[in-house]
Nucleic acid binder design. Structure first.
Lengths: 323, 323
DNA sequence: GCGCGCGATACTTTATTGGTATAATTCAAA
DNA sequence: TTTGAATTATACCAATAAAGTATCGCGCGC
C-alpha cells in the first residue's frame, strides 16, 4: 500500500467516476484503474461496485475512504510540522504520559504550555510508565507523566501528588449499598479485575502489591488490556476494579467507593532526564506550581493525600523564591 | 512522500545506522541512503546528523520519527479494519458527531453499542452539524449527533435533550462575583467571544440569534475557530463566552454561570436518513433510552430542560411499545 | 596520520508506473 | 429489444523510478 494509492482511491470515491477522477489527478484513466485494482488485490477486498453507474462504494470501501482521508490529513500535518521545526530551528518538546493523566492536570498543563511557549512544537505520546524511562534515556521524549516509582539513576521522578484509589463496584450488589470508604480488607475473597495486562511492571502490579501488603487475597484476578475493558467488566458484574479516583468520570454506570487503608494511593510522577538543562523543564514545573495553586477539581482533598510536589512546597517556607 | 520512505526512515532512526537498517529492510544500503535524501529534499529539512557516529536525529527528525511510527500504525489499523469488514461481510456504522457530545452521552453510547453489537465496525467522525446533513445524504455517515435544527426533508432530526447554556466569565471580574443564573439581558454591552468561525451556520449563529431574540447587543463580537480558543480568551479576560453546560469541564480556570432566559438552551439532536431501515438505528435509539434511564450526571435537571427524546417519552403514556 | 567503518556517488539492471489504443460493459433512449 | 453514448478494463509500449554492484570519500578512533 502506498500513499499514492490512497490519494487515487479518495479521488475515485469522491467523484464516483474513474474518468473524472483521473482528470483531477492529471493522469490517464487506465493507470488509475490498475492502481485501484492493485489496492483491492493487496487488501483482498473489493472497495468499489463497478457494475453500477455511477460507481458505488462497498461497505469496506466506505470505511477505507474515510480512513484514507484522515491518514492523508495526518501525513500533511506531519509534513508541515516537520518543516516548521526544521526551518525555524525551533525545538520540539516531547511529552510521554499515561492515559489516566488525561483526566487530571495534563490538558490544562498543555494549554498553559502552548500559551506560554508558543515557539515550541509540543508532541504528546501516550505510553506506559515503564516505557517512559527508556524513552527518556533514548531522547524520544523529554518529559514523562507516569504512576510508577523507578530505580533508574539517569531519570529523576518527582511525585506531584498522591491520588487516592477508589473501587469500582457493580451497581446493585451488596458492596454498592454504601458510599462510605471501603477498607482494603473488604476485597478479600472478591473477584478482582486489573489492568493493564502489558507492559509489566505496571499499574496492575501496583494494585496487586497493595493488596498483598494488606494480606488480602482476591478469590480470582482477571487481567485485561485497558481500563475501559476493566470498568466494562465491572458493569457486567464480573468483579471489582481498583482505579485512580480521577478515572471515575470514565464511566458513570458503576458505583465507586474510596479505598481506605495504608498506601491506598497511586502517585502522579513527573519524569525527566537527570541534568537536562532545557529551560522548558523549569517552565513546566512553574506551570504545574501555578496549576496546583488554582486548586482544580481533580486535586480536591477528598481524592488526594494532602501533599504537594517538592518544588511546590519549597517556595512557601523559604522566602528566597520569587513565588 | 511515500509510505516506503516512512518505513525506511523509521528503520534508520531505530538502528541509528544505515547499513544495519538496510539489512533489516532487506535492501542494499545505497538505495536506502538515496530514499532518505529524497525525503529530506522534499521536506526541505535535515532529519539526520550524519557527521557523527552513531547517526543522530535532528529535532525535526525526532518529531518526524515519532509521527511516522504513528502514521504507519494507523495505516496498519486501516488495512486490518478494511480486511475485516470486507471479508466477513459485516457492516460499518459510521457516526458523525460535534465535539461537544464527547462531554455528554457519546462515549457511554459507543461503549454500549460496541458491547451490544460487537459484529459491526464502528467508525466515528468529528464534524460540524451542518456538515452532517450532506454526509448523511451521501452515505458517508449513518448517524449524526449535532446541535442544529435543519430543514432537510431527507434527514430526520430527533431532539434528545435541551441542554442549558452557561456563560464563561473571567475570574475576578464583577460578573464572576455571583454564581446565580445570569439573565440574557446582562450580556448587553459586553464583549462576546463566539465559536466556531466555520462552517456557517453553526453554534455561533445559534448563540447570536438567541441574543438577538432578546434584543441584546454585545459591544463587540470576536469569532474564533474553536471552543478551546474561546475559553482561553475568556481566561485572558478578552470577553465572555456562551457554552453548553457540559462543556464546562473543559476548563476550570474560568467562572461559569447558568444563562437565564427564554430559549437559553441548545439541543442535542440525533440525525439519520429518512427511511433508513438499518436495525442499528433502532438499536441506537434503544441504547439512548437505556442511557437516559440511568440518569447520568450530564443529564441532571440543573443543566437540562426537563424534556426527554420523543422515542423515550412515547413508551410511558402509550402502552403500544414493548417497553 | 593511518586504517576501518560507514555513508555517498556513479553506473547498471530491474521493477513499477503512466500513456495510447481498443475492447468490453452498463445504462438509457429509441 | 436494440443501439449508442459513456465508462471501465485490457493489452501493449514508453518513461520513470527504484534497487543492485562497485567504488569512492570522509569522519572518527587508535
Amino acid at each position: 500500500m502506498d500513499l499514492r494509492q490512497l490519494r487515487y482511491f479518495v479521488a475515485v470515491a469522491r467523484e464516483r467516476n474513474f474518468t473524472r477522477a483521473a482528470e483531477t489527478l492529471n493522469i490517464a484513466q487506465p493507470p488509475l484503474s490498475r492502481q485501484i485494482q492493485a489496492l483491492e488485490d493487496e487488501l483482498g477486498v473489493a472497495l468499489l461496485i463497478r457494475n453500477s453507474r455511477p460507481v458505488r462504494l462497498t461497505e469496506a470501501g466506505r470505511l477505507f475512504y474515510e480512513q484514507s482521508i484522515q491518514v492523508l490529513g495526518r501525513v500533511e500535518q506531519m509534513r508541515a510540522a516537520t518543516r516548521r521545526v526544521g526551518l525555524n530551528q525551533n525545538s520540539v518538546l516531547s511529552i510521554g504520559f499515561v492515559a489516566s493523566t488525561l483526566y487530571g492536570g495534563l490538558p490544562s498543563l498543555l494549554r498553559k504550555l502552548r500559551h506560554r511557549a508558543p515557539e515550541i512544537e509540543i508532541q504528546v505520546l501516550e505510553m506506559a510508565s515503564v516505557q517512559q524511562i527508556p524513552a527518556l534515556k533514548e531522547g524520544r521524549i523529554d518529559i514523562g507523566f507516569g504512576r510508577l516509582h523507578h530505580p533508574d539513576a539517569g531519570v529523576v521522578g518527582i511525585v506531584l501528588r498522591e491520588e487516592r484509589l477508589v473501587v469500582a463496584i457493580p451497581r446493585g450488589t451488596p458492596l454498592a449499598q454504601s458510599s462510605d470508604p471501603l477498607p482494603v480488607k473488604a476485597l478479600t475473597g472478591q473477584e478482582l479485575i486489573v489492568y493493564p495486562k502489558e507492559p509489566r511492571p505496571g499499574y496492575a502490579d501496583h494494585v496487586l502489591n497493595l493488596l498483598h501488603g494488606h494480606d488480602v487475597r482476591p478469590s480470582e484476578v482477571h487481567e485485561v488490556r485497558e481500563i475501559q475493558t476493566a470498568l466494562g467488566l465491572v458493569a457486567a458484574e464480573s468483579g471489582l476494579c481498583v482505579v485512580p479516583s480521577s478515572s471515575r468520570q470514565m464511566r458513570s454506570d458503576v458505583h465507586y467507593r474510596l479505598l481506605d487503608g495504608e498506601r491506598a494511593t497511586t502517585p502522579v510522577i513527573l519524569y525527566h532526564r537527570v541534568g537536562d538543562s532545557s529551560p522548558y523543564i523549569d517552565l513546566i514545573k512553574e506551570l504545574i506550581r501555578d496549576m496546583y495553586a488554582e486548586n482544580p477539581p481533580w486535586i480536591s482533598a477528598e481524592h488526594n493525600l494532602p501533599t504537594r510536589p517538592a518544588f511546590v512546597d519549597e517556595p512557601s517556607p523559604a522566602p528566597e523564591a520569587q513565588d
